[in-house]
Each structure stands twice: as structure tokens, then as C-alpha cells.
Nucleic acid binder design. Sequence first.
DNA 1: GAGATTGTCTTATTTACTAAGATTCTTGTA
DNA 2: TACAAGAATCTTAGTAAATAAGACAATCTC
Lengths: 155, 155
Amino acid sequence: MSSRKRIVLLASLRHAVRLFIAGASFLSQRAADALGLHPTDMQFVNLLDLLGPMTPGALAQCSGLSSGGVTVVLDRLQKAGYVRRRRNPADRRSVLVHLNPARQKRVDANYKGAQKQFAQLTKQFSQRDLKVILRFFTASGAGRAPLLQNRIRKS
Amino acid sequence: MSSRKRIVLLASLRHAVRLFIAGASFLSQRAADALGLHPTDMQFVNLLDLLGPMTPGALAQCSGLSSGGVTVVLDRLQKAGYVRRRRNPADRRSVLVHLNPARQKRVDANYKGAQKQFAQLTKQFSQRDLKVILRFFTASGAGRAPLLQNRIRKS
DNA sequence: GAGATTGTCTTATTTACTAAGATTCTTGTA
DNA sequence: TACAAGAATCTTAGTAAATAAGACAATCTC
């Protein structure tokens, strides 16, 4: 069952995945540059776009920044019109950070190249295969769960 | 051919890929923390591990750091025993940065959790499906090519 | 209602990164 | 060969982002 061929295949896959991740973080940096955002700011925008409105505390956990650092980043993003702070109806001590949809469109536009590439890429796969690939990504668990785990840093 | 189902599928896939990338960069940060490295240092180690020995100039391009920034990072990594600078036989003005294989093992050990997860994950797929997935990652082109393109920053 | 806790923000400090120039080697031309 | 122009890395001074510790406000528990 677990033939030698499969072992080689898994090694190739592992390498390809790592290259993919390195390339992705590279592209993300380029996108941030083009928008005049810092990489950290871009990370915040991405997190909010992917996971929806969050409290600064949750953003601190997801990003690994300290509480003070989050405040600074949010101030920057708010000043530039990317986010708004709204009261959290569930807990009035805290705040919910909302992404400005208009700005988000501009951010998406900046990824147009990657989106085109994505369209080209997926065109090469049957619907069945795309389902397999989707299952791989969702099952990888590198999604919601670990993002919301606590990080090591204190404060 | 391009049914509505496919469009929905592609949207899900896009979202899953983005979550995957966010989660991966999060894991990378955790790994860096655990090793006492800065995220940038970790990025360098990854790049050298994936792409082999490179000049500081190439690392500057891949990482987006300035030339001076690269020097500082390399000094740190060299002091900690992660890399060595060797003369570049092809051009003696420049230097080739080599990863220390012994240290690299330690870095790999730190990703043990992710590797286990990877093993668990791939177990759920047939060999044929794994080939499909591999093709997706390699064809994505987020590998070698864009990593070696020039970045926007100057200096 | 009092005390402890949680969530965010503020301020001072540390530290990483940038920018500009210096140094060393290479390449091309006379 | 000698010289000038260019390239790759390093050095140093200055900027800016992130941390750490503490302050303030709202919530929860007893």
C-alpha cells in the first residue's frame, strides 16, 4: 500500500507546498508594498477579510502582536480608512474591528494578477479534481482552528 | 462546461487557499518563536533550505529586505550557527550563503507537529489524488519563478 | 456592592530596518 | 596592462515599528 513511489510523491508534495507558501508570502508582501501598507497591516486586512469582524484581542492572537502593537496597527489602518472600530454588542469593554468594504474592493483589485493566475490554474483541472484539491486545503486544518489558538507570546 | 456549481467550487477553493496561507504564515511565526528566531530570520532559513545556497543579493530580492538589512540578518544567523558565508567561486566580489545542515535538522524537528499533520492529511488521499494535488501546487507557479523576480523596493 | 478579572489603550524603551556612503572585486576599453 | 565604470557586500547613522509595563474602563463573581 505505502509503496516507495508514494514516499517519493509525498516528499515532492511537501517541497511543493513549502515553495507555495514561500511564494505566497512573497506575493503578499508585494501587494502590501503596492498599497502602501506594511506587511503587518496587510496581514490584518487579510485576517479580517477571511474571518470577519474581530476584537483587537483576537487580532493580537492571530497575528502574534502585542496588545499595544495591535492598537498602533489599527490606528494606522483606521486613519487610512481600511477599518472601523465599533462597539462590541456582546461585551462593551471591547471593540469589534470591521473592514471597510469599499477599501476591501481596492485590495482585491490589487490581487488581480494572482486571481488571473488562479483562474488559469484551475482551468487545468476537472471538477472532480478541484473537489479533491479543495478537500486537501480544508482538511489541512491550517484554517480557522490554529489561527485562533493562543500564541506563545505574553502580554 | 463552466457550470454554476463550478463557480461556487472555485470560490470555496479560493477561500480555502487563502485560509491555508494565513494559517501557514501563522505556524511559521510560531516555529520561529520556538527557535528564538525572528520571523525574518526564519524566512531566510526557509529560503535557503528550499532554494539552496544563494548570495545576499538574491536573498534581498527574495525577502524584500534592503542590502543592509540582509547583512544584519545574516550576521545574526551566522552568529547563531545557522548559516555560513563562503566565497562565491563564480564571482569573488560576492558571497554564497550556505545553510548549516546540522542546524537545519533542528529546524525540521521543530516542524514535527506540522509534519505529523501532513502525514495524517495525506493518508486520506489516494496516490492518484496526491498526484493531482502535487500538480496543483507545482503548476501554481508560486514557487521558484516569482521568488526570484525583482521586487519593487530600491537599494 | 466590593474585589478580581478582562480588554483596550498609553507611554517609554528596545530593536529591526532603511538609506546613503565606503570598500572590495569585476568587467570592459584603450 | 592600466584605468575607469559598475556591481556586490558591508558599515554607520537615523527612522520607525514592536514590546513591556502600567492605566483606565467595563464585566463577572461572590
